[in-house]
């Protein structure tokens, strides 16, 4: 088995008395696009900062590209490309100058590749950074993250603040540039629909812990929704893997994880007229995990 690109074990972090990360465990396979999703304020950026060695965790371990985040910070930073949410750069610098300036930090900066990227991303080299549009700003940040051809790219909500067209444009570039180069992409976002089409793997972070992680396709297959008319004596509390129960007029909607034939048979016994089974999209899966009603029939 190959070594994961990123491996996090039991990561804890606190801002004063506020516990932000409460034991995050994560493995990001090499060459994958990994979607890291969670609501605002759940600890996504904190996890990323810790991965980059920008802050020291209370406890836990974080290995990025085979290097320890806390003791081999410089090695990690040489090998990764990072783009922060709403990335700000020196506004007074011209695009060409900031590329040169950032290139100075990397011994392996690929000037030819960065020039190609600038062309692909249609970046004007003689314009000051503060004069760039939001979309151009994101493109520049992407170029600065990729110019040294990193093994791992970490994107922290990179499309924050972009309009829908700019967002699609940006994502298209990300897919074009990264998917073919076997680069590991760690993509953090709270916009699930932008992750869904590209992510091979998903991890859902809620309240400082990973509540679900796995391949995107497997999640879609194993988490199913059943719509049925329940028998008067139906006891949904007996079902162990209910993620969400919703009451829809006379019917009930059940979101079930790790769904197999035995569970389906059990659900059938609780229904008065059979059931209707559908797949969930990522948005619905996320909703079921994060704010789902787990088996409280009265609430349903």
């Amino acid at each position: 088995m190959t070594e994961p690109a990123i491996k996090i074990e039991g990561l804890h972090f606190s801002y004063g008395k506020k516990h932000v990360l409460k034991g995050v465990d994560l493995e990001v396979p090499k060459g994958s696009i990994f979607g890291f999703i969670g609501r605002n304020g759940t600890g996504k950026t904190t996890t990323i900062k810790t991965m980059l060695g920008l802050q020291k965790p209370s406890s836990g371990k974080c290995i990025v590209g085979g290097f320890d985040s806390f003791t081999q910070t410089l090695e990690i930073r040489k090998r990764i490309g990072f783009m922060a949410e709403d990335q700000q750069m020196y506004g007074w610098m011209k695009v060409g100058r900031i590329i040169k300036w950032v290139a100075g930090f990397y011994p392996d900066w690929d000037y030819k590749f960065s020039a190609e990227l600038a062309e692909i991303l249609r970046l004007p080299m003689n314009v000051k950074v503060k004069a760039l549009s939001k979309g151009q700003n994101s493109s520049l940040a992407l170029l600065l993250a990729l110019g040294h051809r990193p093994d791992i790219v970490i994107l922290d909500d990179p499309t924050l603040g972009l309009d829908p067209i700019a967002r699609k444009d940006f994502l298209r570039h990300v897919i074009d540039l990264l998917q073919s180069n076997s680069v590991t992409v760690f993509f953090s976002s709270h916009l699930l629909y932008e992750i869904e089409p590209v992510a091979d793997y998903i991890a859902i972070l809620d309240n400082g812990v990973i509540i679900k992680a796995g391949k995107t396709e497997e999640l879609r297959e194993k988490i199913r929704r059943f719509i049925l008319k329940p028998k008067p004596d139906a006891d949904f509390g007996r079902l162990a893997s209910v993620l969400d129960i919703l009451k829809l007029a006379d019917n009930i909607s059940l979101a079930i994880e790790d769904c197999d034939e035995s569970k389906k048979a059990e659900i059938k016994t609780m229904s008065s007229n059979g059931y209707q089974e559908t797949a969930l999209n990522l948005d619905e899966i996320f909703e079921a995990y994060v704010i789902g009603n787990r088996g409280d029939l009265h609430r349903a």
Partner: peptide, 17 residues
Amino acid sequence: GDMDQKLYIFWRSKPAG
């Protein structure tokens, strides 16, 4: 110029001593 929180992360995330 370097101490603004977001700029700070920008240059600190680079491999600079």
